[in-house]
């Protein structure tokens, strides 16, 4: 049976322009999936998500195989990730709109 873990990295964070999740160690996992839920949507806004990776949990770059996901700041979104190495984080950026949405962010990991 494969090991797995779901981590709720944000339980209800106000997106103030840019937000980066806390560094999370993922060396043991072979696949991952982000879920982002707009607990307080901001219709009419554009929010972009980037999956980022790191060799040390200190220095971060965008994952080379995952295009930024643009959203309308409503509903529930998901981003699958493979080949991510030992660290993962999600960068959220509000590109347009005046009202800040509130996010719940899950990271699901599996061997």
């Amino acid at each position: 049976m494969r090991q797995s873990q779901s981590a709720v990295l944000e339980r209800g964070v106000d997106l103030e322009k840019v937000h980066e999740t806390e560094p999370f160690e993922t060396a043991w996992a072979g696949e991952a999936r982000w879920y982002v839920q707009f607990l307080r949507p901001a219709p009419g806004s554009q929010v972009e998500f980037r999956v980022q990776i790191s060799p040390d949990g200190l220095n971060w770059i965008d994952h080379e195989s995952i295009a930024p996901l643009a959203s309308e700041a409503v509903g529930l979104l998901s981003i699958p990730v493979v080949n991510f190495g030992h660290w993962l984080r999600l960068r959220s950026e509000q590109k347009s709109g005046d009202e800040a949405p509130m996010l719940r962010i899950y990271l699901e990991l599996k061997e």
């Binding site: 339980r11 209800g12 949990g57 220095n59």
Partner: peptide, 27 residues
Amino acid sequence: DLDSMDEHFRDFRPPQLSNQNFFDVGT
């Protein structure tokens, strides 16, 4: 509801399975 939780109980962080991966020595 998030607001129904004590504010100081909302963010105790998920534990991580770590291989202790560091910038200077690796794992």
